[in-house]
């Protein structure tokens, strides 16, 4: 898909996205920030947003976001550039016992 960004959700978050495993966010102006993509994806889905970001807007510590396979934390965090056609994976980190 060249005119949008695909966001792949883990199974545990799909109940907060109406059962969808994948969200598509239109991107028409070249690249936008990851923050903008997420802002668009969670409109009308506040419970999904709350699982991914806290109320300051920061990514939760044990939530990993990959943009085209690259860890967004190593590419500018929420300011990371996301281009049309990109694939974003949201995944829980390996943590706990």
């Amino acid at each position: 898909m060249s005119d949008g960004v695909r966001i792949i959700l883990p199974g545990v978050l799909r109940e907060f996205a109406g059962g969808l495993g994948e969200l598509v966010v239109p991107v028409v102006d070249g690249t936008v920030s990851l923050r903008t993509v997420l802002d668009t994806a969670v409109v009308a889905r506040p419970r999904l947003d709350a699982r991914i970001r806290d109320e300051t807007g920061a990514l939760r510590r044990h939530v990993n976001v990959f943009v085209d396979g690259q860890d967004a934390r190593r590419a500018g965090g929420l300011d990371a550039s996301v281009g049309s056609g990109a694939v974003i994976h949201i995944l829980p980190s390996i943590a706990g016992g």
């Binding site: 545990v12 978050l13 709350a50 699982r51 939760r60 044990h62 939530v63 829980p92 980190s93 943590a95």
Partner: peptide, 8 residues
């Protein structure tokens, strides 16, 4: 509180 998905 989920270690991953935060508190509610």
């Amino acid at each position: 509180r989920s270690e991953h998905w935060g508190p509610t």
